[in-house]
């Protein structure tokens, strides 16, 4: 019989988690965890809810960063005026997670901790150089979201560690977009997700990154490919070449949403479209 506990502070939560790495799990919105339990894939002995811990949800903005609490729902993120103004590609990604029922209950922290490859927000966060704030039995630390997911459903979080939030630098000159492709019904999880983030110095490209998610085990950034476009204008030829190179470079997963061949094709198309949207 699974125990359900609701600690009041993070230290208590971390201690319970660290006590039994396999048996004790954090539950946030629960949309992913409960599904796995019902499918009989996991049988936690204790579910550690973070529902009663203060300061874990909400969106804050200071001069340099926007910080989103781990327990903030996708709906809240998508609706936030702050996020829409400063991180519109994240608002877009969160507004398209699953379906409205999942968005109302599922949280960003849970989404990141689950490290399901077929997710939307991580792809955007990696492209925005987002930081992941973590607390554990040995204290707090910060790591790039890009270093969080290490494999299927696997993160670099240590025993007892809990994600408390995500923060992103504010940058007036940055333009970022998210392209989501679903191969089946509109409420399907993504077959391929691509984020493109660019920064211009006048008309010439100062920074550019492209991240591919959902088609691969963990979101992958292709700085080595996009570097070739820096200093240029990101014209049609450059966009096409980058798209083709990335389509070739990925090692795609095969599942009910598409084969490896198909994901390569669609990735190239999505990269091209994302680059079109960030080009001048």
């Amino acid at each position: 019989m699974t125990r359900f506990v609701e600690p009041r502070d993070l230290q208590e939560a971390c201690a319970i988690l660290a006590d039994d790495e396999w048996g004790n799990k954090v539950i946030s919105g629960g949309t992913a965890l409960v599904l796995m339990m019902r499918q009989g894939l996991i049988a936690p002995s204790t579910l550690v809810s973070i529902g009663r811990i203060d300061d874990l949800d909400g969106i804050r903005k200071d001069d340099s960063r926007i910080t989103i609490g781990a327990r903030t729902t996708h709906t809240a993120i998508a609706a936030s005026a702050e996020v829409q103004r400063w991180l519109p590609s994240l608002a877009d990604a969160c507004s398209r997670v699953g379906n409205v029922r999942v968005r109302n209950v599922g949280t960003l922290g849970g989404n990141l901790a689950e490290a399901d490859y077929a997710a939307d927000p991580p792809t955007v966060l990696v492209g925005l150089d987002a930081l992941c704030h973590v607390i554990g039995p040995h204290g707090a630390r910060v790591l790039p979201v890009a270093d969080l997911a290490t494999g299927f459903y696997t993160t670099s979080l240590g025993p007892g560690e809990i994600i408390t939030g995500v923060s992103v630098l504010i940058d007036e000159h940055r333009v970022s977009v998210y392209e989501k492709y679903v191969s089946r019904s509109s409420e399907d999880r993504p077959c391929v997700g691509v984020s493109a983030t660019a920064r211009y110095d006048g008309t010439s490209l100062d920074q550019l990154n492209v991240v591919v998610g959902a088609a691969v085990a963990v979101p992958r950034r292709f700085d080595e490919v996009t570097a070739s476009a820096l200093g240029g204008t990101l014209d049609e030829t450059a966009r096409r070449d980058i798209a083709a190179a990335i389509g070739e470079a990925i090692d795609p997963i095969e599942d009910a949403r598409g084969s490896a061949w198909y994901r390569r094709k669609v990735t190239a198309v999505l990269v091209k479209r994302a680059l079109e949207r960030v080009s001048r």
């Binding site: 019904s185 509109s186 599942d255 009910a256």
Partner: peptide, 16 residues
């Protein structure tokens, strides 16, 4: 059967 659930077996959404 590899997809006996509504995540992998896809029925149309009202949005479709």
């Amino acid at each position: 059967v590899s997809n006996p659930n509504l995540s992998d077996y896809m029925i149309p959404s009202i949005v479709d």
